[in-house]
């Protein structure tokens, strides 16, 4: 396994959130406590994604967010131009990639590799454009296809490779296939579902893509469990994603086994300075909890402390 580069603070954004290098620079300039930034998922060809509406926002705090962007992307050529111009001050760049089959994953990985400190392989986006024929849904469900994808990506880059799993799968089996195929770590995980929201006024599904991946607080216990189980089984580097809004959420994921923590939905409605402030508050809270100990001591500690047998994977 290739070790992940040091990312400090161990906070990043989630893929599909903030998305573009110039936004990352604006966050850096605002003093965000993000040690790394993840691009939107880069695909094999330009794609528009779903028509609007692509989100259903929470109406009250604690409700989930639904999104169905369905992986819009500029072409890999345009991403190359964009990323070649990108100069982050201190933060690392993680490039998220997707493809329709393993060959496309490999091709995109090879093209993005020169710009990336880490390649994150999106195996589990639950969204698609209605009528679209794609293997994306099934790849993340099937250990054999996921292993094949990671094998191709592994062959295309020397950079660390993270397999980002779907909670809507037998993820331990998928993760095992990915680790066997050469993944250096796991992303736990993508959005849940997809789910549905209907507008009572018009009587119609709100999302143009009809269904959308579920994120926010509702996702946290699901992906926290995935983090916990994957750490117990593989003991590998894990990026925890899903409902991280406070330092307590971040600490929970770290205790479960995440060495990197991804923030997404918590940025909803926040200006750059407000979002940067949130990341600093989360990191300060984590540091206060550590009381001077290194962050690495926190990672996976829930497994080392006595824990009820039933909580183990």
């Amino acid at each position: 396994m290739t070790a992940l580069p040091e990312i400090s603070p161990p906070l990043i954004n989630a893929s599909g959130i903030l998305s573009y290098p110039e936004v990352f620079r604006a966050f850096e300039a605002s003093g965000a406590a993000l040690g790394g930034y993840v691009t939107k998922s880069v695909g094999p060809a330009e794609k528009m994604g779903n028509e609007n509406p692509v989100v259903v926002c929470p109406e009250v705090e604690g409700q989930p967010l639904l999104n169905s962007l369905a992986l819009p992307t500029q072409s890999p050529e345009d991403w190359e131009t964009d990323l070649a111009e990108t100069r982050l001050e201190n933060a690392r760049l993680i490039v998220s990639i997707y493809g329709g089959d393993s060959a496309e994953f490999g091709e995109v990985a090879a093209r993005m590799s020169p710009f990336a400190d880490i390649i994150e392989v999106n195996l589990g986006c639950p969204n698609k454009v209605p009528g679209e024929v794609t293997l994306m849904e099934s790849i993340g469900q099937r250990p054999d296809l996921s292993g094949e994808v990671i094998g191709r990506v592994r062959g295309a880059t020397k950079k660390p490779v993270i397999a980002k799993l779907s909670p809507n799968s037998d993820y331990l089996a998928v993760a095992a296939a990915c680790m066997d195929a050469g993944a250096d770590g796991l992303g736990c995980g993508n959005t849940l579902g997809p789910g549905l929201a209907i507008d009572t006024g018009t009587g119609k599904a709100i999302l143009a893509g009809v269904t959308g991946g579920i994120s926010g607080p509702a996702l946290k216990p699901v992906n926290l469990r995935m983090t916990y189980e994957c750490y117990a089984r593989f003991g590998c580097p894990i990026i925890g994603y899903g409902g991280i809004e406070s330092w307590e959420d971040a600490v929970e994921y770290a205790l479960a086994g995440a060495c990197l923590l991804g923030i997404g939905t918590a940025f909803l409605g926040k200006s750059t300075s407000e979002a940067a402030g949130l990341t600093r508050r989360i990191w300060e809270g984590v540091q206060a909890y550590l009381g001077g100990a290194p962050f690495s001591e926190l990672v996976g500690r829930a497994h080392r402390e006595p824990a009820p047998e039933s909580a183990r994977a």
Binding site: L18, V54, V55
Partner: peptide, 15 residues
């Protein structure tokens, strides 16, 4: 797209 600061689509020089 999202219009709530998540997707980054409406960036103007990163804002």
């Amino acid at each position: 797209k999202c219009a709530v600061g998540l997707c980054g689509q409406c960036t103007c020089s990163g804002l």
